[in-house]
């Protein structure tokens, strides 16, 4: 599957779809307890990480508030 992750083309082998929780694990995203996930421009509820799925062509953004910058 081909995703755009934080603006970069990213390939994930042998997967047609993945839950957001599995995607966070597969991509070894840091500080998963704090990360905000935006899927195709929509902010996901943390409670939906297990239920929401990503598929080829989706755009995913991981957002943190730790690094400073504007909200």
């Amino acid at each position: 599957m081909q995703l755009t992750v934080n603006g970069k083309q990213t390939s994930i082998a042998d997967q047609e779809t993945l839950s957001v929780t599995s995607l966070l694990e597969t991509l070894q995203v840091s500080q998963r307890e704090y990360v905000t996930v935006e899927l195709n421009g929509e902010i996901l509820d943390r409670a939906d990480f297990d239920g929401a799925t990503v598929k080829s062509g989706d755009a995913v953004e991981f957002l943190y508030f730790m690094g400073g910058g504007a909200a």
Binding site: S30, Y64, M66, G67, G68
Partner: peptide
């Protein structure tokens, strides 16, 4: 840039973290 934009975790400056 990724850290400042909140796309990645990392240290920048001790006032912030």
């Amino acid at each position: 840039e990724d850290i400042f934009r909140g796309r990645a975790v990392g240290q920048v400056y001790t006032r912030i973290g």
